[in-house]
């Protein structure tokens, strides 16, 4: 593999940080959207539903291409000269959009699964809206959402490979370059598969651990 081991190590870090950043951002946005969709007097319900439907119905690759190439044009227009959007930024934005779309649905389902009596009891205790979310619905909802939420992370780490198509030097890109320059595609793509497999395995194990530590309450 020549000098590609160090490059693979660096690329591994790029993939992991891309996943972590977009997953965390996506979680925050997903939580907010799910909360706004679940509150009875929501004005954005239709907009949020539209957003999740579109994001989940369009290929991730297309979203990445749109944000990378479209983003370059948009940034150039704003700046008044040619600006290229960096592949990492485009990847983070695109994967955040994808992740938040799915996470919204996961959290919304989990919120709906928390018995209505809990909210009513919290209201009768005099808790305000934020207290209800933080102390009553939130903790129960997160535990219910955990298994499906973990699956989203696995999908996310697999989707990071698509960002290599717009030139991010992640695991996939290094494998592509290495395969071309050393004329050993089999070796390089197998190495890439092993890296991705270890990444998904680590994710899987952490979800398992979290699920055991925080099982759904009252079942």
């Amino acid at each position: 593999m020549g000098g590609f081991t160090a490059q693979f190590a660096a690329a591994f870090m790029v993939t992991v940080s891309l996943g972590l950043v977009s997953g965390s951002l996506g979680t925050v946005i997903g939580l907010l959207l799910a909360m706004s969709k679940s509150s009875p007097a929501s004005r954005f319900k239709a907009a949020v539903t539209g957003y999740t439907t579109v994001v989940r119905g369009v290929p991730e690759l297309l979203i990445i291409l749109l944000i990378y190439f479209g983003g370059t044009i948009f940034a150039s227009k704003v700046a008044g000269r040619y600006v290229e959007v960096n592949a990492f930024t485009a990847g983070v934005i695109a994967l955040t959009v994808v992740f938040s779309g799915y996470a919204t649905e996961v959290f919304r389902g989990a919120i709906a699964a928390v018995p209505a009596g809990q909210t009513e009891a919290a209201k009768s205790l005099g808790l305000n809206a934020w207290q209800r979310w933080a102390f009553v619905i939130g903790p129960q909802m997160l535990r219910l959402a955990l298994p499906a939420y973990g699956n989203l992370w696995i999908s996310l780490f697999k989707d990071t490979a698509l960002v290599s198509i717009v030139g991010l030097t992640d695991i996939m890109r290094v494998a592509f370059v290495g395969a071309g320059s050393l004329r050993a595609p089999l070796t390089f793509y197998l190495a890439a598969s092993a890296l991705y497999l270890s990444l998904t395995t680590i994710t899987l194990l952490s979800i398992r651990l979290a699920e055991r530590r925080y099982p759904a309450l009252g079942r």
């Binding site: 697999k158 490979a161 698509l162 595609p185 598969s193």
Partner: peptide, 11 residues
């Protein structure tokens, strides 16, 4: 299921 489909395709 643990590896991206893109890697499998390129492989």
């Amino acid at each position: 299921r643990g590896t991206p489909m893109l890697v499998q395709l390129f492989l």
